[in-house]
Design a protein around this nucleic acid. Structure first.
Length: 294
DNA sequence: CACCAGGGTACCT
DNA sequence: AGGTACCATGGT
């Protein structure tokens, strides 16, 4: 029986904390010195990469760290995953560039709401909108003396009780009515986020797409980043560009053709491959041969 | 000023 | 079914 503590170590090999926290799957982590600070499960958390794994610190003493271990996915066998990728030179370069990048297992509602706010916005602006939402509607979370104030991500019922006007003051634009309507659908139980856990991937997609402001792309983001569906394959503008330029010789495949290709070509961890491809083409200059129009 | 950003929806053919 | 304007906002 271990005693409650505010610090622990998650053993891991080949875990790149910076790439993992800042590759566009989560939006709430802030760099602080050589570590990262954020809020997970309604608790202030600081993470630091150390020899042998990830060191974590909280404010409240923890007896059970499983909630954070689950989030970090430090136990995932990254080597097996990378070995399952197709062996073409594009994926080889992506794997080289993304070494140590893990997919997190995030809270479903926070992930869903975050990606509702993501449409046609750049990642820094997505982060800003989410920060505004948390400051305006979240609950204060205990943080260490001297550290910046921290807020939880507001629960569905909290946002459901808000108004479109108040949400628009968070500078989220036309996404405000989507966020409000989805919060109400989830809070009322009309669309259960819990039931997704016992669904197949096609069932889960149909289920989430019922929510206003949630289409195929956002549904697959949530299924990949929060529910652990490793074959979910979000296709955004970057991934579409990459697939077209790198695998379709600049042709214009239809969305259904893309999905079929993704699931047959990239294998059982297609979603992981997608994130490697996304981070690679987005951060490496010259990864894509040219800057295509439309 | 035009164009773009981890899209979705309504409304056309 | 497949195309397209539009939806706010901030940055080049």
């Amino acid at each position: 029986m271990t005693r409650a503590s505010t610090e622990t170590l998650f053993p891991a090999e080949n875990y790149d904390l910076e790439k993992t926290l800042d590759c566009g799957q989560a939006f709430r982590w802030l760099r602080s010195g050589d570590g990262w600070r954020g809020v997970v499960n309604g608790e202030w958390v600081e993470l630091r990469s150390v020899p042998g794994g990830i060191a974590a610190r909280t404010v409240l003493p923890q007896r059970d760290w499983r909630w954070l271990a689950d989030y970090l996915q430090a136990d995932a066998n990254i080597q097996n995953i990378v070995d399952s990728f197709p062996r073409d030179n594009v994926m080889a370069r992506a794997v080289e560039h993304c070494r140590g990048l893990r997919l997190l297992k995030q809270d479903a509602w926070e992930c869903l709401a975050s990606f509702i706010l993501s449409s046609t916005k750049q990642i820094p602006q997505i982060k800003q909108g989410i920060a505004n939402i948390c400051t305006a509607f979240g609950a204060a979370v205990p943080s260490p003396p001297g550290a910046a104030l921290a807020w939880s991500f507001p629960a569905p019922a909290v946002l459901a009780a808000s108004t479109e006007r108040a949400l628009r003051e968070c500078r989220i634009g036309f996404r405000a009515p989507y966020l409000l309507a989805s919060a109400r659908a989830v809070a009322s139980g009309e669309v259960s986020l819990e039931e997704v856990n016992s669904m197949t991937l096609p069932e889960a997609r149909k289920h989430l797409v019922r929510l206003p402001g949630v289409g195929p792309k956002i549904a697959d983001c949530v299924l990949l980043f929060a529910y652990g569906f490793q074959q979910a394959f979000p296709v955004d503008v970057w991934v579409l560009r990459a697939l077209r330029m790198l695998y379709f010789a600049k042709k214009r495949p239809k969305p259904a053709r893309i999905r079929l290709f993704a699931n047959t070509y990239f294998g059982p961890f297609a979603g992981y491959a997608q994130q490697y491809l996304f981070h690679y083409v987005r951060t490496v200059k010259g990864a894509l041969p040219e800057r295509p129009r439309k």
